[in-house]
């Protein structure tokens, strides 16, 4: 614990989704990088207003799926062909056809594991605490208020300027949050 807590960022409160979206589009155009928007419900078009690129989670599920399929095929090949061969009805000991359904199921299972774990990893979750949770009014983000948070770590962050910018964008209240 330090005696003088460092500043985490600025929390700007908005009353309407429209004002939030316009403000987000402005921050995007200004080139801010470490910032986020919090709304009580999904606001359509916010992704674009924030300039978010499509999520990387898809790659994790794809890799998970490929791993699952390969695991399934290799497992069945090893068990049925090498480890414990049981000849049935003159059929080949290993055939991709009979091995496909279980491999396909493993594809889906590992694919969903990949998606879940990839999402947690990219979101840096789980974590026990977040500076924003200390903010008194932030709980309203799950009720009827809209918040934009600009972090101090952003290269474009300037103490006074950013505050005036957020206020000029229609924020009703801009408050600092400590780390």
């Amino acid at each position: 614990m330090t005696a003088t807590p460092t500043r985490y960022g600025l929390v700007a409160e908005f009353e309407t989704p429209a004002a939030t979206m316009h403000a987000a589009a402005r921050l995007r155009d200004e080139g801010f990088q470490h910032w986020d928007v919090f709304t009580p419900y999904p606001v359509h078009g916010m992704d674009k207003a924030m300039g978010l690129k499509s999520s990387k989670v898809g790659w994790f599920s794809f890799l998970g799926g490929v791993t699952g399929y390969t695991t399934g095929m290799l497992m069945i090949w090893f068990m049925n062909k090498l480890d414990y061969p049981i000849p049935v009805g003159g059929k080949p000991l290993f055939s991709p056809f009979s091995a496909f359904p279980p491999s396909y199921e493993l594809t889906i299972l590992f694919g969903s594991f990949g998606a879940l774990l990839g999402m947690l990893f990219l979101n840096r979750l789980p974590r026990l605490h977040h500076p924003l949770l200390k903010h008194r009014r932030f709980a309203l983000a799950s009720h009827d208020r809209f918040f934009i948070v600009v972090e101090t770590s952003d290269p474009r962050y300037r103490e006074g300027e950013t505050r005036t910018l957020l206020e000029s964008l229609g924020s009703t209240q801009v408050e600092p949050v400590e780390e």
Partner: peptide
């Protein structure tokens, strides 16, 4: 019951 979210209607056209 709640302040009308009237401005919600002003959702801008998606570019």
């Amino acid at each position: 019951a709640a302040p009308p979210l009237g401005t919600a209607g002003a959702k801008p056209k998606t570019a």
